[in-house]
């Protein structure tokens, strides 16, 4: 039972980190129709910037400066890159962001090298908050939980309670009408792209010390972020949150318990083949849950797509 609690907390941390990435991506996609392949690269950029800043002035200033820098870069890329490509349709946009992802990985390696960087959590959070059955819960994990929760509430407030949120939501559905009412829709787009990439940068700043700061960190998360927003429903903040948490818990619990497929199959009344080595099903009989853990989110995505093609909280068809 203790382990369930520990895994719930770990899954929550993973899920909330994922949420910080997917919230920005889902906003950008629903508003501009741009599948931003480079989104995870902004996350990586955030971690590297924050590392560089932390070597001069420590972790905390980096927490605020790095996301702003990443957001500014994101806004500039939207203004001078994506907006020009936009008129040629979706495929050039896709290729543009794809190229951007490759470029950023090379740039990062050019400046910081291929090795993992010693980017560490701040000393003040470098202690064990509490232990459950010998399992330490570091204070930094709690910090991640609270930071992500704060971001979610702030986003929710801005989107639903403020005038800016009203315009964003309107621009989401009827951009022409909003433009006719005198609002600068391209500017709104640039702002959303900047804020979205800035959020990804913030996720990088926070996740860098926890998951490691190295050139492969973007590729590791790149595909799972898309899975998250598809499951959650494009454009839905609540959907992104729920899907992130689901994926966080699924991947954590899959690894945590060594459930063997042989047990499940036997429970279903199947009998183990006498000669397993020559059986066509030997792979199925020897599989364990931790081995297939990484593909479970993709399985979930397919199930969701089959039964609710617009995602859990999505409002329109894909």
């Amino acid at each position: 039972m203790d382990m369930v609690l520990v895994n719930l907390i770990d899954g929550l941390v993973t899920g909330l980190l994922l949420f910080m990435l997917s919230s920005g991506l889902t906003l950008i996609f629903s508003m501009m129709g741009v599948l931003n392949f480079a989104h995870a690269s902004f996350y990586m950029l955030g971690a590297y910037f924050a590392y560089q800043i932390s070597t001069y002035v420590g972790f905390w200033p980096g927490l605020f400066i790095a996301p702003v820098l990443v957001g500014l870069i994101g806004a500039m890329i939207e203004r001078y890159g994506l907006r020009r490509v936009h008129q040629y349709g979706h495929v050039p946009e896709l290729i543009f962001t794809f190229g951007l992802a490759l470029l950023m990985e090379e740039v990062v390696q050019f400046f910081w090298g291929k090795n993992q960087l010693p980017y560490e959590s701040p000393k003040i959070l470098d202690f064990t908050l509490f232990s459950i059955a010998g399992n330490a819960i570091p204070a930094y994990k709690m910090f991640i939980i609270f930071a992500a929760m704060g971001i979610f509430l702030a986003l929710l407030y801005v989107l639903t309670k403020t005038r800016i949120g009203l315009i964003i939501q309107a621009a989401l559905r009827h951009p022409r009408t909003v433009e006719a009412l005198g609002h600068n829709v391209p500017f709104v787009f640039m702002g959303v792209f900047g804020v979205g990439t800035g959020l990804a940068g913030l996720a990088g700043v926070i996740a860098g010390p926890e998951l490691g700061t190295f050139p492969g960190m973007a590729a590791l998360l790149g595909s799972i972020v898309f899975v998250t927003i598809v499951i959650g429903g494009l454009g839905s903040l609540w959907g992104a949150l729920l899907a992130s948490l689901l994926i966080g818990w699924i991947t954590t619990f899959a690894v945590a318990y060594n459930v063997a497929f042989a047990d499940i199959l036997e429970a279903l009344g199947l009998s183990r083949p006498a000669d397993l080595a020559s059986s066509a099903w030997r792979d199925l009989w020897t599989l364990t849950m931790p081995q297939i853990g990484p593909i479970l989110p993709y399985l979930l995505m397919i199930i969701v797509l089959v039964f609710r093609p617009y995602g859990l909280f999505g409002k329109r068809d894909l």
């Binding site: 998951l211 998360l221 991947t251 619990f253 364990t288 931790p290 990484p294």
Partner: peptide, 21 residues
């Protein structure tokens, strides 16, 4: 005695929990 996917694990915490437990 376990093997994890090479270069595909985002977060090793669940493995670490199992080791401690």
């Amino acid at each position: 005695n376990e093997l994890h996917p090479i270069g595909r694990v985002k977060d090793f915490t669940p493995y670490a929990r199992k080791i401690v437990a």
